[in-house]
Design a protein around this nucleic acid. Structure first.
Lengths: 162, 162
DNA sequence: GAATTAAGGATATATGTTATCCGCAAATGG
DNA sequence: CCATTTGCGGATAACATATATCCTTAATTC
């Protein structure tokens, strides 16, 4: 059970977009170069963010992506689910129905007890991600990334932002 | 990010083994029939439980599996990790290192901030599973499964338990 | 009008899951 | 001792998904 690498990419890209000045866009090309990622494939992850309305796009030179909302209004789960999908990690195939001792046509009143527990854990995972805002990540990064690297990176970004 | 179906199988099998009288064993064949699962492949899940020392085995006719510990001493996470592995669902590939603005050879003091958040969610998932004991599942099942089905099932099981 | 961009379809490759089959060694019961 | 049954592990195949690339189209900029 491993998350797509696009999840990691999307989160890092959102962190960069969060630092972009109002009204400016950053292209797939720039985001791919900055993170050392395959441009064409990263594009798929960004398209997922676009379909989830987390980012806005514009075409042409100086076009690209920007956040659709303030970083404090975007949480981790939204980004993760945009790329990974909203399906639960545990899928119940109702194998209890195969029990030869069950009367034919018997109908369960509740979902399987095993599934309920697994889904509870899944929800705990989601709730943790829901509680973390994109602005929290940016705050942590601005504290931990050495100031000169932080500055150079955004100079680099601004040079490429339309 | 979807768990192996073997996780579901292992949990249901452990629930059955938990109801087995002291000192008796239940074979792969019986567990596969009871749940309507492919015997050969279910065997792999049971082997995982065996390697994790969650179950004990014995060979020959009337052989099979039994729990290595009391159901109250086994939690969900142990079973899940036995078949799914202990690897975290999020793998950090450290794409921040590809940042062209980083000085060559610069070394990070902490793991990536993105990874730390994703790992925190992963831990919340694990902690939820860690808190649920196998005996809790059996308790829920004994309340929810209709008494006649419950009784018939364990009669069926005992007829096949060595 | 030329260049650049996002979007999406088609396709190829790699990896992982699901599933089956086989041989081996251990245990059972006759 | 012998036939049967069992768990175990290796080998292999079928299938699904993730990863990656290429191409066309339409919109936008300069």
């Amino acid at each position: 059970m491993i998350l797509k690498s696009q999840v990691e990419w999307a989160l890092h890209c959102c962190a960069i977009l969060a630092g972009l000045p109002e009204g400016r866009y950053l292209s797939t090309k720039a985001l791919a170069e900055l993170h050392g990622l395959p441009k064409e494939y990263l594009s798929k992850a960004l398209q997922s963010l676009s379909q989830a309305s987390l980012v806005e796009t514009t075409l042409g030179p100086s076009g690209g992506y920007r956040l659709a909302r303030a970083p404090s209004e975007v949480n981790f789960l939204e980004i993760v689910e945009a790329v990974e999908g909203k399906a639960r990690s545990f899928t119940c195939t109702n194998i209890r129905e195969n029990n030869p001792c069950r009367p034919a046509g018997y109908c369960d009143s509740k979902p399987c007890a095993v599934a309920r527990i697994m889904w509870e854990a899944d929800e705990a995972w989601r709730e943790t991600l829901r509680r973390v805002r994109l602005s929290d990540l940016v705050g942590t990064l601005s504290e931990e990334v050495p100031p000169d690297i932080w500055r150079d990176t955004f100079e680099w970004v601004l040079k490429r932002a339309g």
